[in-house]
Simulated scan of single mutants.
Amino acid sequence: MTGRPVRPAPYEPPQQSVRGQLLDAAVVLVLIFATLFATTYLSTEEPDSGAATGSAQQLAELALTPGEREQYQKMIDAGVADRETIAAGVAANQPAADKYEIDVLALIGTAVLLAVYLGFVYRVSFREYREVIEEKFGPGEGTS
């Protein structure tokens, strides 16, 4: 022995196959499309049959400030909006007691689902972290 320290081989991380990468990309795309589909088609509300029927209200009849009335009139003159759309928007923004109902069961379900997901992510991440440390530095002193 010459007393020279033995240098370990340079670290080579494991390689993911092309098939695995394509599978990962396909899973992510499916999840994105499923999320977009769910938010677009499952959460849309039916339009009110009585809304915006009949003659549109004049801007003077709506609960608007003078500045809002002036801006809405400019939009109507420019052809950007019509009176029905503006009346519907103003009506939708009026305060109401039942406007922001919170479904307690849905809130609790969301919190539980989020906690389970974060627990899963923590567990998997911690396992992968240990695997990377073990690959880089070898088994720890307490493990065999």
Rank of each mutant, 00 (worst) to 15 (best):
V30M: 08
V18R: 13
I32V: 15
L105F: 03
T44A: 11
A52N: 05
T110N: 10
I76L: 15
A38Y: 10
S43N: 15
Q57S: 14
A111S: 11
I86R: 01
G79C: 10
G20A: 14
S144I: 06
V112M: 14
A97Q: 04
A63H: 04
V80S: 04
I32A: 15
R83S: 08
L118Y: 10
A97V: 14
V104D: 08
L105Q: 06
L42S: 02
V116P: 01
L118R: 07
P95S: 05
P10A: 12
L31T: 13
F37A: 10
I108Y: 03
I133D: 07
R130G: 01
L118N: 05
G54P: 07
R4V: 12
E84G: 01
S144V: 09
V112G: 02
R7M: 11
G140C: 00
E131C: 08
D103M: 03
I102E: 03
Q16F: 10
A88Y: 02
T65W: 01
S55G: 12
F37I: 05
G20D: 15
I108G: 01
Q73P: 00
T35V: 07
M1Q: 06
R127N: 07
P13S: 12
P14M: 04
L31I: 05
R127Q: 12
Y72H: 08
E84K: 08
R130K: 11
L107K: 06
I133R: 15
G89K: 06
T110H: 09
T143I: 04
K74I: 03
V132Q: 09
D48N: 08
N93A: 12
A96C: 04
P13Q: 13
L113G: 14
T44G: 02
I133Q: 13
K136R: 13
S17F: 09
G89E: 09
Q73S: 09
L105C: 01
R4H: 11
P66G: 06
T39G: 08
D77Q: 02
E61L: 02
G138W: 07
R127K: 13
L118W: 09
E135D: 15
E135S: 13
A81N: 05
I108T: 05
A38E: 04
A106Q: 07
E70T: 03
V132E: 12
G89N: 12
L113S: 14
Y117Q: 13
G119Q: 07
Y41P: 02
Q94N: 04
E70V: 00
T2Q: 06
F37E: 01
E12T: 08
V116T: 09
L114N: 07
T44P: 01
E131S: 14
K136W: 03
A87F: 00
